[in-house]
C-alpha cells in the first residue's frame, strides 16, 4: 500500500483547491462546487485514518456516509436559495447580492 503521508498530502491539496475556489469565485453555484470539493477531501481523510490507525475501522466510514448525506442536504438547500435569489434579484453573482447591506 502507498504510505499514509502521500494520501494526506493529496487530500491537503484537494482541500486547498476547494478553498481557493470558494474564496475566488463570483458565481454562487461555483462556490457550492468548491465547498463540495472540500467536503470530499475531508471524507477521504476520515476513511484513510480509520484504515491506517488503531481506531474502530467502522467509525470513519460511518461518519463519511453521514457527511455525504449532509453534503447532499447542503447542496439541496443551497440550490433552493440560489433559485429564490435568482427569481427575486435576477442575478447569480455573489457580489451583486447585497440586499442585506446598506
Amino acid at each position: 500500500m502507498i504510505p499514509l503521508t502521500h494520501i494526506l498530502i493529496f487530500t491537503s491539496i484537494l482541500f486547498s483547491i476547494g478553498l481557493y475556489g470558494a474564496l475566488s469565485r463570483r458565481h454562487v453555484v461555483g462556490i457550492l462546487i468548491a465547498v463540495e470539493l472540500m467536503l470530499n477531501a475531508a471524507n477521504i481523510n476520515l476513511v484513510v485514518f480509520s484504515r491506517y490507525t488503531n481506531t474502530n475501522p467502522a467509525t470513519g466510514q460511518i461518519f463519511a456516509v453521514i457527511i455525504i448525506v449532509l453534503a447532499a442536504i447542503a447542496a439541496a438547500v443551497g440550490l433552493a436559495i440560489v433559485l429564490s435569489i435568482y427569481r427575486n434579484q435576477k442575478t447569480i453573482y455573489s457580489d451583486e447580492i447585497d440586499i442585506l447591506k446598506w
Binding site: V29, N40, V47, A64, I68, V69
Partner: peptide, 25 residues
C-alpha cells in the same frame, strides 16, 4: 481503499444526485 460501500454511495449520491441538481440550476 477497499471501501466499496462508500464508493457506491459516492457515485450514486454525488455523481447522480448533486450533479443533476447543479446542472439543473
Amino acid at each position: 481503499m477497499e471501501a466499496e460501500f462508500l464508493g457506491a454511495i459516492q457515485i450514486l449520491l454525488y455523481v447522480g444526485g448533486i450533479m443533476t441538481l447543479i446542472i439543473f440550476v
